[in-house]
Amino acid sequence: MDIRTLQEELVQYSKTIGIDKIGFASASPFIELKERLVRQQELGYQSGFEEPDLDKRTNPELVLPQAKSIIAIALAYPSKLKDAPRSTRSERRGIFCRASWGQDYHDVLRDRLRKLEAFLQERVPTCKVKSMVDTGELSDRAVAERAGIGWSGKNCAIITPEFGSYVYLGEMITDLPFIPDKPIEDNCGTCTKCIDACPTGALIQGGQLDSNKCIAFITQTKGFIADQYREKIGNRLYGCDTCQLVCPENKGKDFHFHEEMEPDPEVVKPVLKPLLSMSNREFKERFGSISGSWRGKKPIQRNAIIALAHYKDQSAIDELKKVLIEDPRPVMRGTAAWAIGKIDGESSQEILLNAKNKEKDQDVLNEIEKGLQLITR
């Protein structure tokens, strides 16, 4: 079959299986990307979640021998929550970022990529393919940019003309010589709204991110959160949307094309206090289907404690006291101690002093001291 005809058929087929945008790129090495990644490593800006082998991240032939081209796909996801529950004084709520709404996007994109693979292998049985989503070797953003899906914005997201940056990305390396699409011209111009709005200054400059300062990364860590970031987290349980929300290219963009991506409001904007006593089984049953659950319940519970402190929720003191006294995990006990001091309720000082007399873990004792210092009386 003529490669151009096959490519056209593949594009048409992609529309029938729920792929919102598809593009093609050469499989030549990403030389400029490697230079940037080396610099990121030197500066200590990487999160540690990335593929550590820079050669694999930037040379498709090391992932799939005799790679000739890469197919990039994008699926648009919702940016607005329908029938969103309101946070009240008695029931304060947290929020998961938009990229964690609905079914885990890894599963959704892998489904689409498997269908593309089957389509190609039915027509060219000898072809070789390798698909990946997010956690694969290649940089989704670099592939999407080369394939003309969108341009790489100053917020370090791919921005598409049609859907803004509210898109999930995936790619497939092939040994078929598809005709490359042209990259899209950068349309950020002189705009710096995302850089100016970043709560922690994680966006160092356009297109450069210090992952260790990024709230989206910080909410996924499992240890104590540094003091200077606790105030910045607010009621975020997982991820951060600030740099997307302020982007002019995202204004008015809200797409509900895929049933799997429709969020359950009670899951993505949950009441905070019940999270503190949730068992592993309960957590998996309620949150296991969304991408924001991948690190387990510990980061979510810790972030819920910080959110209750953010709200200064006096009604949460009893639940936080229970965590401080009974939770076997030092990070939970310590964060609860800090939160109790931050909320500064009538019994806060007594609770913290009693806990101080019984606590053995030095990190928790340090947090108890922080909590006591926050009390104004």
Rank of each mutant, 00 (worst) to 15 (best):
G371L: 01
L203E: 09
W151Q: 10
C243W: 06
S152D: 04
V108R: 01
N303T: 05
F257I: 01
I204V: 15
I95A: 13
L54I: 14
Q205Y: 12
I184H: 05
A304K: 09
E50R: 08
M332T: 03
V63K: 05
E91T: 15
V129S: 14
D107M: 10
G239E: 02
K322T: 14
V364C: 04
F178H: 11
R286N: 07
M132A: 15
E9G: 08
P248M: 02
Q205N: 09
G207E: 08
A27Q: 08
K222G: 13
H256F: 06
P180F: 07
G102N: 08
L138T: 13
D264N: 14
G292M: 02
K269G: 00
L138C: 03
A304W: 06
P85C: 06
S47C: 07
E61D: 14
A72L: 01
T200Q: 12
L372D: 11
L169Q: 11
D196I: 07
R141A: 13
Y229R: 09
R114D: 14
E8H: 08
S131W: 08
Q244A: 06
L365P: 09
Y166N: 03
I225N: 03
I70D: 00
K80S: 09
K253N: 02
R230P: 00
G153W: 08
G252S: 02
L75N: 12
Q205G: 00
R112W: 08
K321C: 05
T135W: 10
M261D: 04
E350L: 11
D134S: 09
I70V: 15
G334Y: 04
K15S: 12
F163Q: 10
Q66K: 15
H256Q: 12
A336F: 10
V11H: 08
F30N: 11
E8W: 01
V11N: 04
Q12F: 01
F49A: 13
I70F: 05
E42G: 03
C194R: 11
L237I: 02
D2P: 15
E259L: 04
R112A: 11
Y77W: 12
F224V: 01
L176D: 12
N250G: 02
L62F: 01
F255H: 12
K321M: 10
D363G: 11
M132P: 00
M278C: 01
K82G: 09
I375P: 00
F96C: 07
L245C: 00
I195C: 04
R141E: 13
Y238S: 09
I73L: 12
E266Q: 11
R36E: 15
S26N: 13
I233L: 15
S131K: 14
K21E: 14
E61A: 13
K284G: 07
Q103K: 13
L275W: 02
I233M: 14
Y168C: 01
A339M: 10
D140E: 14
E266M: 05
R141W: 02
T88C: 07
T190C: 08
G207K: 08
R123Q: 10
H258V: 09
L374C: 01
I71S: 03
L203G: 04
F178K: 10
E319R: 03
F255P: 01
E50C: 03
D264I: 05
L6R: 07
L320E: 11
K251G: 00
D313W: 02
V246P: 00
R141V: 00
M132F: 13
D313C: 06
F178P: 14
K269L: 05
N187V: 03
E346H: 05
M332A: 04
D210H: 13
Y77V: 12
D327L: 00
S79E: 03
R295N: 13
I215T: 10
K213Y: 08
G288V: 10
